[in-house]
């Protein structure tokens, strides 16, 4: 057994808002340098789970550990690159001003900051629009800029909430290539999606529905266990729409 220390350990986590239980007894682990997909319909609790991992939100019961540190913990936030579902950008500023702002929050400065801004903008193919104001960006461009900001400080853990929504297939493929390249460099990636073909690109998948974790396995493992031909079928199988 090669003993890989999990980057994320979620143990028996419940999260309730009022008397509504949004997450029910979730337990899972994410290993170093893998791409871990959270698959589920909207309203299933994906975003809530991601927010627990970021440390913005806190579990009602159970615990979340990040690199062995119990969350939420302020200093761990430096280790995370987070991309929210909504593009959290200052639209009246230019892309460059947005990037510089967030770079400063993560303590990047001087030549390193300039270099990182150039690198991430090349990565999402926005280098020509660096000085443009964000309110002139299209939806897809904003999404890419959000991703660029999440990558700025080279975090060992990326938490991406629906990262490829509104991005065209060509660019989506190039983003996936980049994510895989980051994996190879040791970056752990957790992302949510409800696009099935994207799910297949993940190393492992967690299927979640109504706040319940249905299954965690490799895409191939899920297909095999359910006897399905596609991830979509496997998902329907776990979702109780059994044949």
């Amino acid at each position: 057994m090669n003993q890989v220390k999990p980057v994320i350990e979620v143990t028996g986590v419940d999260r309730s808002f009022g008397n509504k239980r949004v997450l029910k007894n979730i337990t899972l682990q994410v290993d170093e340098a893998e791409t871990f997909g959270i698959l589920g319909p909207s309203g299933s609790g994906k975003t809530t789970l991601i927010k627990l991992l970021t440390g913005i939100d806190e579990a009602t019961s159970g615990e979340v550990q990040l690199l062995g540190v119990r969350m939420p913990k302020l200093k761990m936030l430096q280790q995370i690159g987070y991309m929210a579902q909504a593009d959290a950008l200052y639209t009246e500023l230019s892309a460059k001003e947005n990037l510089e702002f967030f770079a400063s929050l993560y303590g990047l400065k001087g030549g390193n900051r300039t270099r990182r801004i150039r690198d991430v903008m090349e990565l999402v193919n926005l280098q020509e629009h660096l000085r443009k104001r964000v309110d002139q960006y299209s939806g897809g461009m904003k999404r890419r800029l959000s991703l660029a900001i999440a990558l700025l400080h080279e975090p060992p853990l990326l938490l991406l909430d629906e990262p490829t929504v509104g991005i065209d297939p060509v660019l989506r493929r190039s983003i996936w290539q980049e994510l895989k390249a980051l994996n190879r460099k040791g970056t752990t990636i957790v992302l949510t999606t409800h696009v099935m073909d994207e799910a297949e690109k993940c190393d492992r998948l967690a299927m979640i529905r109504d706040g319940v974790l249905l299954a965690v396995d490799t895409p191939a493992g899920l297909l095999q266990a359910t006897g399905s031909a596609t991830i979509e079928e496997a998902f329907l199988y776990y979702g109780g729409v059994r044949q």
């Binding site: 936030l77 987070y82 967030f102």
Partner: peptide, 14 residues
């Protein structure tokens, strides 16, 4: 409302 506060709070900003 634009989500930037949440984004700020996901950084080590106090």
């Amino acid at each position: 409302t634009t989500g930037t506060l949440e984004r700020l709070l996901s950084t080590p900003l106090k």
